[in-house]
Each structure stands twice: as structure tokens, then as C-alpha cells.
Design a protein around this nucleic acid. Structure first.
Lengths: 251, 251
DNA sequence: CCTTAATGTGTTATAATGACGCAATGTAAT
DNA sequence: ATTACATTGCGTCATTATAACACATTAAGG
């Protein structure tokens, strides 16, 4: 795959890549989809290169889609990373030897790559982590237990989470991270997990319902310990509306 | 200049550029620093290319500095633009002929360029718009009277303003856009101009002073019609602190 | 059947916001 | 000089939002 790209490098934007921070939510944990190439010691964010005939947003969708199989989810560009030495220890000649790529073609890879960061929010249960070949492992990892990552991928991940936390104040979140029917406590735990902070149950309920994006269903969650919580779903129309205009007007 | 870059294109990141939206404030108008190359009909944002041995942030500082002469001001990356055809009508062979660049070297320019957008807030009065050569005009233009721009520069400018408006709710603004001593009405007009919205005088005063970033000076503005307003300055220390932690906590 | 650990609903004090009123001040017109 | 006028500075009040907390309800399990 990488070999194909390098050998057809004239079809790809040089020195530019895309990395996706794909968030999911499960077992009250914020998960991140990470990849490990078998021969490598470290994990990395799913990424890809940009065909010269594709918009960068389209290329990002391709990356997300190839790893998760989902389409039409929340995907947003958040920052671009371009320190001089960000990949100088990584894309070195060993890879080219390993992939049996001739030196002239290989030069395409041996330069500083600037990478455009996107983050996605996806429904954990709808995703089957998809390894594109047998040499790599794709896995959901709790964001609190992320192992050492290649290059500056930790920095990229942190920035994505910072952005997500900030955008939590500007727009509703949850539609893409929760199943269709969910309970208020579940939604609250999502918020608490993202923010890494305890919230008051009762105040949370009031605030979240006041936004007007929730529909209370005439149905309770079954098979739960203690009192069965009510189920809710998002009112997609109002949700989209609030996504557009934003939550806080501020000034 | 462009000729130099193309002829030494191996020293520059291929297919990648930087564009700066430089905001200033004067006469109660939000100004944008724009450039017009004499032979061109349209204006453009000041931009530049990225030396392979420079961080992208450093390259952005270079662009800003070369046009304004200022250093250490507010400069922030806000988005990266990479539609497939964003520059296909612009960087064409005519330019290469005009610059007398041989075809092989010129290929560097004839591809899709992805551009990283930065926006800067600078003190209008401290800037001397600096044209790098006689063929170009550098000018402050009221953001409401921005003429047609090349490529997708209008889109970039709009996105920068959107970002600025959003960040107005997250952090204090003004330190880089106003002179050292200023009045509350001036600061309010800055906010009103950026937001394109009238604010209540009295509520603005209360809110802005409650942030705790202003120092009331024992001095009034002179030579003004009507009642002389008090002068204020920013408490740099508290300002920086609020910049870090942010204004609204939200959740 | 009682304990336990959740959920659902409400209350109260405090703070933030939005919409105004009015006096003080300096310019400009008469 | 006096007055009209625009603008600043400071304050009020009703409404809304927020934070902290009390209590009843519900289901599971000993």
C-alpha cells in the first residue's frame, strides 16, 4: 500500500499527509482508534496521503472510511502540524529498503511531511476496526491508556482532545458517539469522560434538556441494576440547527 | 522573489503555502492588509512559501514580519485549505513565461497548492505596510470593502473572521489591535466592529471590567468632542493569564 | 422486607445578563 | 454666557442561568 503510493508518488501531494484522531465511546471510556504496524514498537494514528485529484477533506473522509467503514459522520479539520523535524526519525531509508523501493522513487518519502489533523466522532458499536492488511493491528484504546505513539502523534491527539473539549462549549455533542437510544446518565458520562471532570446530575439534566435537542422516549432502559433510567434520542433536526448556530452567543 | 523561490524550489516545501489574514483596527473599522501585484486585477492575502528547514509557524512569522515589520504579535493558525482546483487558474504557464523560468523548474509551481491559513492581530499604527518590491501595492482595506480576491482568498478571509468572532468568546482581544492607552468606548467599538453588532455601553463596561484585564489610568483622552473618556491599558500579566485559561468555562 | 444505589424532580441562594434611567462632562450653537 | 446636545460614567431592576443541595422513587439483592 505504502509501496504503491511511493511508486506512484506523482499522483500524490508531496510532503503532505492526513492524520485522523477517531474518537469513540464505550464502557464509559473515551476510546481512540490506533494502529500498530507489526514490525513497529509504537502505535500511530490512522493516516494517509492526499491524491492530487482530491480535496483534502475528501482524502480525510477516505482515511476515516477505510479504517472504520462508516460514512457521513462528524469529521472536522482541527490543525496542521509542520515542525521541521517532525518525521525525520521515522521515514528513513530503512523503510525504503524494507519495501524494496528504488532510491529515486523513494526520495518522495524522505522529506519533512506536513500533516493535516482531522478528528472524527463515531459510534463505537457501528465500527469494525479494519486493518487493511495482515501486518497491522487496528484497535480501540482508552484515551487514558494510550501507549507511546510515533512522531508527534501524541501532540496531535492531545490537540484534537483540546479542540473537542473546547467545541463541547460551542455545540452539542453525542449524536455521533452514542447509539440511537441512550439515557441521560450515559450522555452525562460522555461529557464527564471528555472533560475529565465530574458534573452534577441534576444541573446537567436541566442544562442539556434546555438546549432542546433531546426527545424523551416512552421507554426505559432494561436489564439494569437499580432504577431503570429513561431512554432518549436526539432530535436530529434541532440538533443540526444548534450545530449551525452554536450554543453560547457570548457577546 | 517568486522567481528565486522557483529556481531554488528544492529548498521549499512543494505544493504548500502560507496565507496570512492580518487584521488591524483604525477609524472604527476592521482593516485587512491586502496586496495587489500591479499586473493583476485582483487583490490577494499576503502569503509565502515554506522553507524545508523551517517550522510552518516560523514561516508564518516570516510572512507576517516581511509585510508589517512587527514581531511578537498575536498570530494563530486557523485552518488549512486544499480544494483540488483552488489554484488551477492562477499559477499557470503565463507566470512562468513572464518570470522567464525554464519549464522543468517551473513544474514546481504548476500543481495544486494547499495553503495553511494564519490570522494575525496587529496594532494599525505601528505598521508600515511594506511592499517588497515596486510591482506590488500593500494596503489596509476595510473588511467591509474588500474587493474581489484571487483564488479562494475570500473564503480564507471569511473563515479567519469567523474564527476571530468565535475566539472573542473564549479569550480577551484587543491587546494587539489597540494602542497602549485606549478608552472603553474604543474597545467596545472594536468588539462591535468584529462582531458586526451593536452592544450596550453599560453592560459592555461591566462585563469587560469584570474580566479583570484592564487597568484604569488616571488620565483622560484629550481633544475629543463631548465628554472626555477615561484612558485604560491592559494589565498584561492578567491578560496573558486569561488568554491561557480562557473566558468561559461552559461545562 | 429492608438495604443499597441508582434515577427523577424540585428548591434555594447566588451570580450573570439584558434593558433601562439619570447625572456629569465637554463641545458647539445661539 | 447660556443652552442644547452628544457622549461618558455609574447605578437599578427584572429575568435568567448557575451551583449546591434535599427528598422521593425505583429496581436489585441479601
Amino acid at each position: 500500500m505504502l509501496k504503491d503510493i511511493i511508486e506512484n508518488s506523482e499522483n500524490y501531494q508531496p510532503g503532505l499527509s492526513i492524520d485522523c484522531v477517531i474518537f469513540g465511546f464505550h464502557d464509559n471510556q473515551l476510546k481512540v482508534l490506533l494502529i500498530k504496524v507489526d514490525k513497529s514498537q509504537k502505535w500511530s494514528l490512522p493516516g494517509g496521503f492526499i491524491p492530487v485529484d482530491q480535496d483534502i477533506d475528501t482524502a480525510a473522509i477516505t482515511v476515516l472510511n477505510s479504517r472504520t467503514g462508516v460514512e457521513g459522520v462528524f469529521l472536522r479539520q482541527f490543525a496542521t502540524f509542520g515542525k521541521v523535524n517532525r518525521n525525520e526519525q521515522h521515514f528513513d531509508k530503512k523503510i525504503l529498503e524494507y519495501l524494496k523501493i528504488e532510491e529515486e522513487k523513494g526520495k518522495w518519502l524522505l522529506r519533512r511531511f506536513v500533516t493535516i489533523g482531522y478528528y472524527a466522532l463515531v459510534d463505537f458499536l457501528k465500527i469494525i476496526p479494519n486493518s487493511m492488511n495482515r501486518n497491522e493491528t487496528v484497535e480501540w484504546i482508552d484515551h487514558k491508556e494510550v501507549p507511546e505513539l510515533i512522531l508527534d502523534h501524541k501532540e496531535i491527539l492531545d490537540k484534537a482532545l483540546d479542540t473537542l473539549r473546547m467545541e463541547l462549549n460551542l455545540m452539542p455533542i453525542g449524536y455521533n458517539l452514542l447509539p440511537e437510544k441512550f439515557t441521560i446518565p450515559e450522555l452525562q458520562k460522555l461529557y464527564e469522560t471528555i472533560l475529565d471532570k465530574k458534573l452534577d446530575r441534576r444541573n446537567f439534566l436541566r442544562k442539556i434538556t434546555n438546549i432542546g435537542i433531546l426527545s424523551k422516549l416512552d421507554e426505559k432502559k432494561s436489564n439494569v441494576a437499580h432504577k431503570a433510567p429513561n431512554l432518549y434520542s436526539f432530535d436530529k433536526e434541532k440538533y443540526e440547527e444548534v450545530l449551525k448556530i452554536g450554543l453560547n452567543q457570548g457577546w
